[in-house]
Design a protein around this nucleic acid. Sequence first.
RNA 1: CGGGGCGUGGCGCAGUCUGGUAGCGCGCCGGCUUUGGGUGCCGGAAGUCGUAGGUUCGAAUCCUAUCGCCCCGACCA
Length: 570
Amino acid sequence: MRYSQAFIPTRKDDPADAEMPSHKLLIRAGYMEQVAAGIYTLLPLGWKSVRKIEEIIRQELDRAGAQEILMPMVQPAELWQRSGRWGFYGPELLRFTDRKSQEYCLGPTHEEVITDLVRRHVRSYRDMPLNLYQVQGKFRDEVRPRGGLLRGREFIMKDAYSFDVDQAGALVAYEKMRVAYTRIFERCGLDFRRVEADTGAIGGTSSHEFQVLAQTGEDRIISCSTCAYTANVEMARFKRQTADTTTATSAACEPVSTPGKHTVGEVAQFLKVAPSSLLKTLIYLADNAPIVAIVPGDRELNEVKLKGLLKVNELHLATDAVVTEVTGAPVGFAGPVGLDFPIFADLGVELMHDAVTGANQGDTHLIHVEPGRDFKPMAYVDLAMASEGDFCPSCSEKMVEFRGIEVGHIFVLGTKYSEPMGATFLDPDGDAKPIVMGCYGIGVTRVLAAAIEQNHDADGIIWPSSIAPYQVIILPLQLKDEAVVAAGEQLYNTLADAGLDVLLDDRDLRPGGKFKDADLIGIPYRVTIGSRGLADGKVELKHRRDAQPELIEVNAVLEHLQARLRNEHS
RNA sequence: CGGGGCGUGGCGCAGUCUGGUAGCGCGCCGGCUUUGGGUGCCGGAAGUCGUAGGUUCGAAUCCUAUCGCCCCGACCA
């Protein structure tokens, strides 16, 4: 491509309504343009990169035995009513009616359509395993779109669905996708981790996320510094340490006055005890029924864990009024002793002795509290939020924390959709059984943004070569120098003929402008042709990350480039 | 949905408090100049001040309503 003919509207200033680096750079560098909140047009550079990502995905999924299809974006309400999600999915599902007043929605995901397809054609155990995928636009009416492509309303997603005769088969399919995903993100040149994840509303038995590491990521990831254990903080387990006070007290629990001391910090300081010897008592409404959750005073409660444990649809912290009603005391003085509601205590609570907690009475706490003696939880369960420095649940070494951007998520779904939608098959004994499904997503446009979050500097984007819109940009600096122009043209043809994606900056611009644009749009390799060097038959080759260019023979550029590109992949 | 902020030539902003008929930088067009990191100078085109209504002799500016966008939170594959 000749730059003079390319549509690459770069800007000098950051756009006013972008905050995240990828959002700013995608717009500044002319990759995309906003159309509405969370809705963007991909310009030639952006679309070219997206297609490269898609192509890597297609190659790896095909290699893993999956087959590509294309489902519609518009889906009839009927399918969603049959799966039960029409009533459940909420306002994120954009619904509308056609001229005949039939109800439809824009597909945020395609379990319904594909299950309906498969139930009609997959009738025998002989038809499986089967894995179908598509790369397609999705629409989710996000509560709050943000960060450009990181959380858009309309976005491109690859979604794959596997169909197997039993759980064991589904796990084989899952494993194949795990391998394929690893290859995909490696080929995209990304630094990522596969993490244990919450299955959330989708449900299922296994779930892993693929997280691109970036400081700007929304997700927190806890990872063992020694072994392979890595999990989203929503799920992360950790090994409890024995509490400081390891010996039980024989003293009966006893109320003490703690006027105006509401928080763990205030009470601990006032009574001169460590926060870790307090019982943090929280009142939640689980599907509108009050329950009591307890974690050690130095811990945060992990609501995702609690919600998963209770298997409820709605879970939220009780309002002050409800707390007062349940405990008979103002907020800040709740404790489990004497409370007649279901109590769930964190595993760490079981190790605590001689603890301090609220007395369910204003301005009063209890000391000498013994879990198990003074109150009996329904269960000791994993409720606490893990954090950096905690010990690994599998090898006991210290764990560290990262931030990540979720670019892929793989699930074993089980029969959640096949059962209600009647997707069954006949096994060898002639018995009808529900198909066991898995689903596997990759946020394609999110990968684009995540790659930038991970790879940029003050001057612009720094693409991994495999997903860059162009692998190399040629800058002939002096257009008045015929030798420079001719060398540029010749090199352009040579590189293009060798199958490289080349951009030739043939614009009549001063060198500064060309350098700035080249850095901004982030093409990984740059060949600079200047009058002075060319007099000696030399041009400059520089990777976007290199501090200094390498001076090489004009005729050797292709060879050098190919060598460097090859090295990236090893 | 709660809280906060912003809508003024293509882009980034000032002007709004204290009403008097719109300005700066970048970009764009023409000319000269310059030519290895966004050159300098001269000239020029371009704005229903988000929209609607109201107050006023007069509204970008004050009042009311409304739409849009961004950020924080809640929520979320």
